[in-house]
Design a protein around this nucleic acid. Sequence first.
DNA 1: GGCTGGTATCAGCAGCGAGTGATGTGACAG
DNA 2: CTGTCACATCACTCGCTGCTGATACCAGCC
Lengths: 102, 102
Amino acid sequence: MMTSVDTDLIRVLADPLRLQIVTLLARETLCTTHLVEETGAKQTNLSNHLRVLREAGVVETEPCGRFTYYRLKPDVIAQLADRFADLAESARTAAENKRACP
Amino acid sequence: MMTSVDTDLIRVLADPLRLQIVTLLARETLCTTHLVEETGAKQTNLSNHLRVLREAGVVETEPCGRFTYYRLKPDVIAQLADRFADLAESARTAAENKRACP
DNA sequence: GGCTGGTATCAGCAGCGAGTGATGTGACAG
DNA sequence: CTGTCACATCACTCGCTGCTGATACCAGCC
């Protein structure tokens, strides 16, 4: 049973600022300037985090002139949600499986 | 719309060893000795991680003589899965919401 | 072409967190 | 009561990672 989740994706989402970015991008597609306004973080910092998100495949970029729009890829998040749902379901059904004391 | 996920729980699950522990506990309830055998990690290290998982409310303990059984709490994982599912759903419906370039 | 504004990259620093060894505690066997 | 086993806690080190400032890059406007 492959209910294991790869850690890298979770690590990417485990940062407050990155999670805030993801939450904002879940509502609408934004460019870096908007994210700077919304989060109040420095542009450099945001660019670093966006790089991490991009390399993890969580977001995709769409250049628009001088601007760069970032869009959240729903499938990646949905897949992660499914894995966790499987884990929870597995834990529910196997709650009384208790290995004997050695 | 509260689609934000609290980071602390994700950080707890973002560690490979902790995620392995959670995956194992999703299958059956185990005590520390079993986890030492399964993961190959030192007992001290496991105990530290189990402490983190316990304080995060991810697992619950059940003393059994000299042994301590750890059981995964499915609701916490399920709740996390729901939050991610909401994020993915929100991202799907709001994919074409694009704020104008400033 | 030169300038400006939007974005990405690089290097350095600081703080957090995972891993480890020593040690404490509590329960069972003898 | 004493030894042993299961488990927890403490103290410490060290590597990773997030934040920042400086800088490079690229597109549009004059």
